[in-house]
Design a protein around this nucleic acid. Sequence first.
DNA 1: GGAGGAGATGACTGTTTAGTCAAGTTCGAG
DNA 2: CTCGAACTTGACTAAACAGTCATCTCCTCC
Lengths: 203, 203
Amino acid sequence: MSRGDARDRLIQAAIDLIWTSSYGAVSVDAICERAQVRKGSFYHFFASKDDLVVTALDTHWSTRRPVLDEIFSASRPPLQRLQRYFAHLGERQGEVRERYGRVLGCFHHAIGSECLQKPTAVAAKAQELSLALRRYLETALRDAQAEGSLPASDPVASAKSLFAFVTGALTQARVHDDLELLRQVPRTGWLALGMAGPPESAA
Amino acid sequence: MSRGDARDRLIQAAIDLIWTSSYGAVSVDAICERAQVRKGSFYHFFASKDDLVVTALDTHWSTRRPVLDEIFSASRPPLQRLQRYFAHLGERQGEVRERYGRVLGCFHHAIGSECLQKPTAVAAKAQELSLALRRYLETALRDAQAEGSLPASDPVASAKSLFAFVTGALTQARVHDDLELLRQVPRTGWLALGMAGPPESAA
DNA sequence: GGAGGAGATGACTGTTTAGTCAAGTTCGAG
DNA sequence: CTCGAACTTGACTAAACAGTCATCTCCTCC
């Protein structure tokens, strides 16, 4: 990493600090100090604090995307995709807890619910990523209905409800630092879809 | 309201401003300006910004509590309580939208997920109120299981999951200003409890 | 009417904030 | 060696920030 060394450190510092507290509570100075980068360098790489945060959101998403692509692979039966995703939530936050000492939930969701309309660019990026995530669910539900393994209904509305449950569980887990709650997600998730449990082949 | 006139305006201004944006984005000056109260008066009534916010949380809760007490009245069949609450979510946020021009979700939940550990007093108060709300669900679930209208399970864990879904739906509705999502809550809520729909007598 | 307290006021302090800038250093290509 | 571009640096600004304070204005009770 010769090129973008300080830049990368700034991005990582922003992710660490904002994720563990909040957008509004983290200052440029704090990010610089953690990244061991001077103020002038910050503004060499980024036009503003918001510019860095948008970049941080993109960077973080680019690390999650391949994982989601694998979980929601079209070569996998649609219900098995959901089963893997439900299980992934708990596993992933377990890793987060080991690294940050605390369950932190979803990075861009935490930012998105804090920055409603305030800094347009940040809010727009957070919403964009939330929508991208929801589309994984939507596709899996549509595929499941197409193959008849899930009762027919509006897949967009169903994905919205399921997504609300997932983000709610992640946020509650974050607030109460409660990993156990996420381990309940698979059970309740299937119920919310109108099913008693996961398909036999997916367990 | 002879006593506490300016004080009340400060509390209301804090609720309005923080609810429509966020804790971190609202300054004491902004609150004072909206309340038409001078800085000195602010600190005559409140020891600090956090002190006002804690008071605002309590004040707001005290307006919601009688409504919840009515909805979750023990003289009502437990499943009917849940049905009423599910329906209430959409109605209430409809009112909020009319008043504030936007769906805002749950006030103390928005603050609670933003202020994780930072200002101890604010975070503690927000968590206290979240817990109080969750207990309404817990009691209803316990009563429903006791009378056999809901399959037996751990009511605490079930309440956590149901509460995660409700807060998730409120937050999604807030972020996307989407009232329609909340209107789906009754349907998905019953599913998540392992029921096909509300009891006949409750509809 | 006078004493005293609750409340109002605006100017004030010191700190933190985001963002700027001119003068540096480093380093690879020509 | 030299030139320029990428990068670094620390001092700087102006605004916003939370919080303070002496002084004033009421209103109430004696």
